[in-house]
């Protein structure tokens, strides 16, 4: 029985992983085991860390805009401060704190796992749950503190 290599461009030029080269050199469609999965908190934490790195890049651009406003003098800074105190500015500010705490908690999880520690099921689940859910209460507490001390007001 012969299994000729597919000559169609789809299989040869595949970038999706739907086709694999077998040890005998033949290109075959991948068996559909990859669609059999369920969500794990560890998976969510891993994906969220990548999302967080992207969000931190945006946050760094916002921080750069704030630095630029301060370096551009009192008038420009007053404009930036007025925007930061507006409802949209406060919403973005809340998002920035969620992202920062997510980066710290998820980065700490990643560093701990990188040493080979906490890779068994229970501690891995615990660290992942902290990294996924922790940023939200931390950010809420952060903003409660800002409003309570009068540094920010609506």
């Amino acid at each position: 029985m012969t299994h000729p290599n597919p000559t169609s461009g789809d299989a040869r030029d595949d970038q999706t992983g739907r086709f694999v080269t077998q040890p005998n050199g033949h290109v075959r469609p991948l068996s559909p085991h990859i669609s059999v999965w369920r969500w794990h908190i560890t998976m969510a934490a891993s994906i969220l860390f990548r999302v967080t790195i992207g969000a931190m890049t945006v946050a760094a651009l916002i921080a750069l805009a704030w630095l630029a406003a301060a370096a551009a003098g009192p008038d420009a800074y007053a404009g930036a401060l007025a925007f930061a105190g507006s409802p949209l500015g406060l919403f973005i500010g809340f998002g920035l704190t969620v992202v920062l705490f997510s980066f710290i908690l998820n980065g700490a999880r990643h560093l701990i796992n990188d040493t080979g520690a906490a890779l068994t099921i229970k501690p891995a689940n615990l660290l992942s749950a902290i990294a996924v859910w922790g940023p939200i209460p931390l950010a809420v507490l952060f903003w409660i503190a800002l409003f309570a001390t009068g540094r920010v007001s609506l």
Partner: peptide
């Protein structure tokens, strides 16, 4: 630092 600088003037 964000706590310190929140709402701070120029």
């Amino acid at each position: 630092s964000a706590v310190t600088l929140a709402g701070a003037d120029y």
